[in-house]
């Protein structure tokens, strides 16, 4: 078996989020969306927030979706999905997979309230956040998921705050399933989607989805960047099932954060003349905290 076929073994490929969309080469979000919906299958309704995914997949008259697609605004995909679910219940239709989804801006910032409402009310909806750590669709502005030290167009000297920890906030709503994933491990991501959809109630999957344009890495390195995000401890991979942390991915060989940061233009200012700035040590500290907290 070749490495490629091993890598793709057991991975669902149905092209429900079809090729021909207009994402950039190496787009982590496009890859994630394809994996998510191919795992969910045909009996799925995608409620998508305004953002990159919506823009590159739904220009009239050429949408890239082979499943029902519903978009209205930037900050309400969770509430719209709640409405779809309520309608299915009221009309006695279904069962159907309802996946509300959006980028980090629509999830953690402007849509935060609507997501919290969906979790708290207990709708049978999976919320997927494609986290590319800034407002990419509008040209790389800072979001509350932008990591410490990263340069965006609105944090030109580097972001001064730490990333909001939405998976833990979601779990604290008491929802039955929370998971993190990245686009370098197709099987893991798809298994989490399937598991989530097999559970009744609100679910949250947080997917790290690198953006070559905003992060300043080469498109072919998207998968590599994800691996480093995990192996440095900056993006812990875990599940929280009924409030209990489980299936934490152990890091085989821990990698210093420098290796992750150096691949990306957004951290370039931290390595002027090859010397790491003090922020690099602070970012390493964040990784170390994660390693300790999640026992990575």
């Amino acid at each position: 078996m070749t490495e490629k076929s091993r890598y793709l073994e057991g991975v669902e490929k149905k092209d429900l989020f079809a090729h021909g969309h207009r994402a950039c080469g190496g787009c982590g979000q496009a890859l994630a969306a394809r994996l998510v919906h191919d795992a969910a299958g045909e009996n799925t309704i995608a409620c998508v927030a305004t953002g990159c995914l919506e823009v590159f997949s739904s220009p009239y008259p050429d949408p890239s979706w082979r499943i029902p697609f519903l978009h209205s605004l930037f900050e309400n995909s969770a509430a719209v999905a709640s409405g779809v679910e309520a309608a299915y219940k009221a009309l006695g239709k279904g069962p159907v997979n309802i996946i509300a989804q959006g980028g980090d801006g629509s999830t953690a910032d402007i849509g935060f309230q609507s997501i919290s409402g969906m979790f708290e009310r207990g709708h049978n909806v999976l919320y997927v956040c494609y986290d590319n750590e800034a407002y990419m669709n509008t040209g790389v502005q800072r979001s509350s998921f932008t990591p410490y030290g990263a340069r965006t167009t609105t944090t030109p000297t580097g972001n001064r705050t730490r990333k909001k920890n939405l998976p833990m906030i979601a779990a604290d709503h008491g929802i039955p399933y929370v998971a993190t994933a990245t686009v370098d491990d197709f099987r893991d991501l798809q298994q989490k989607v399937k598991k989530a959809l097999s559970i009744e109630g609100p679910k949250y999957i947080h997917i790290l989805a690198p953006c070559p344009l905003g992060w300043g890495h080469h498109g072919e390195l998207t998968v590599q960047v994800c691996r480093l995000a995990k192996d440095t401890g900056l993006f812990p991979i875990f599940e929280i099932v009924d409030g209990k942390l489980t299936n934490v991915r152990k890091i085989p060989v821990k990698v210093p954060v420098e290796e992750y940061l150096k691949l990306q233009g957004r951290f370039k200012h931290l390595f002027k003349r090859g010397v790491p700035a003090k922020e690099v040590a602070e970012i390493q500290e964040i990784a170390n905290e994660n390693i300790e907290r999640f026992n990575l």
Partner: peptide, 17 residues
């Protein structure tokens, strides 16, 4: 719901379904 914004969004989704 937790706001009028979501109330309108819920009926939007429900009507679309």
């Amino acid at each position: 719901v937790e706001s009028e914004f979501s109330a309108a969004s819920v009926v939007l989704g429900a009507s679309a379904a």
